[in-house]
Design a protein around this nucleic acid. Structure first.
Lengths: 262, 262
DNA sequence: ACTTGTGTTCCATATCGTGGAACATTTTCG
DNA sequence: CGAAAATGTTCCACGATATGGAACACAAGT
């Protein structure tokens, strides 16, 4: 009685599996599929498909517009626009942060852009005694942090007016900052060496959504005594790779366009 | 034999209904529920719950962290951070836009903030001959549009440098703009009268996520010949009400905190 | 080491989901 | 305008599939 194709140890869930697969294909398809699209892509009987969709719709997980397009429903929409959507980004990223921490021993941070500031949303602490305390929840300016520069390089509006001078090395003119951002964009990662606090070095790289826009930034932070130029170069490779892995998990496709659909 | 509680004409979908309800409660609960939480809130047998969760997890719709917390899965996370999440916001808003259009006869727009500009993402055209063409996709500055002012009043970073003078009535100094924003914030809606284009009047109101942050702005636009002071006052009431309804649909709770959970 | 708590696997049972066909609606085309 | 095609929903008898209790595996607390 040969188990069907690739039945990975799952049984007793036919209906739910089908409904789940349906929902996934609706969430991942670029264009909202129609009933017909789903019918042919899933291979389900009309009646079955109709029943499953009705159930999903009844629970607000999908919505059928007048023209017959099947879209993510209000429950999904609400979640997508709520703060909680960041939690799941963190959850999805955590293993990568951890791996990066294991590889470098330094403090790893994940941050998002809030208004014109950078807010840390996750952190894995360094394993040295000399390290930073918990930065989660803290907001910092964009012009003097590696995390901030990543967002600026990703298209966030440049800061205005006189740039706050945090240290002697802070970039305090828009033109010098713009130059740095150009370098950052080309290089693929940002550097802030004693620009926020003397002796504090950070590098950061972008995490991208499937559309390519920068949705978060990943950073490695440590004292300049440990983050020497040679180390920085080495860590930057790891950092960019990790950020890239998260981006991929988010549906970003490295070279060409388009995200995976069903 | 007596249909169970509130069985709204649905049958033949027990398993899917249960799984869907499960997913909804995971998406809507403030704190990620544990297996136990779900067990008691759903009343399902352990074995059933385990099977359903496994199925959802297998499809990437939920994710179980090490500590046993059940969270939205990668598929949901990807969607939440993709551009497509705006589509479903539009879909959810469209009936409200339409109703507003029917009531006022003027052009209705929905916009989001992209960087430091406002991008229109949905529109319902006015029923007069004199009206604006399709603005969807167009980006405009924040300082001279009602839509933009809504975001500024909602906490978006103020624009910098010299403000582009679009008309004689454009607010071109940051301080005058700041005053206007204060009024906007207090009043609950924004007004831009001939500030973008002579004779073009627009009012706008905020759409809020469950967290209270402004995620979109809703506007009514028309020529000053039709949008007289009296009409503006009348329309503003309708506008604010409509924006509020969308906010509510997004999980925003008017007075106190907290969004609905299961 | 024993107990308690949590989650997964197993299995016989009958409940629940299935798909074909009939039906309802809307769209297309002659 | 009416016939035909396309699209989606409801119905129903059948049996495949989900169910929940119990046994099991594992971890945490005492």
């Amino acid at each position: 009685m040969a188990i069907p194709v690739g039945a990975t140890g799952a049984a007793g869930t036919q209906a739910v599996d089908r409904a789940a697969a349906l929902l996934v294909s609706i969430l991942e398809s670029g264009q909202p599929p129609t009933f017909g699209d789903l019918q042919s892509s899933s291979g389900l009987a009309k009646s079955t498909l109709s029943r499953l969709l009705s159930s999903l719709e009844r629970h607000g997980l999908v919505h059928r517009s007048d023209e017959g397009a099947v879209r993510p429903g209000p429950v999904i929409t609400r979640f997508a626009h709520s703060d909680r959507s960041h939690d799941s980004l963190i959850e999805l990223s955590r293993p990568h942060l951890q791996r990066l921490s294991d590889a470098t021993g330094e403090t790893i941070n994940l941050a998002i852009l809030v208004g014109d500031e950078v807010e840390q949303i996750a952190q894995v602490d360094c394993r040295f005694l000399i390290g930073n305390v918990n930065w989660v929840g803290q907001r910092l300016p964009t012009h003097c942090t590696a995390l901030g520069k990543v967002f600026l390089a990703g298209g966030a509006p440049m800061p205005h007016g006189p740039l706050d001078r945090r240290t002697a090395r802070t970039l305090t003119t828009v033109s010098r900052l713009a130059d740095d951002i150009k370098v950052t964009a080309r290089r693929g990662w940002a550097l802030a060496d004693s620009e926020l606090e003397p002796g504090l070095v950070a590098i950061a790289a972008p995490v991208r959504a499937s559309s390519g826009s920068v949705i978060a930034a990943l950073s490695i932070t440590g004292p300049s005594s440990r983050l020497t130029p040679a180390r920085i170069r080495e860590f930057a490779r790891l950092l960019v790779a990790a950020a890239h892995e998260i981006s991929t998990a988010m549906g970003y496709l490295p070279k060409n366009g388009k995200a995976g659909a069903a």
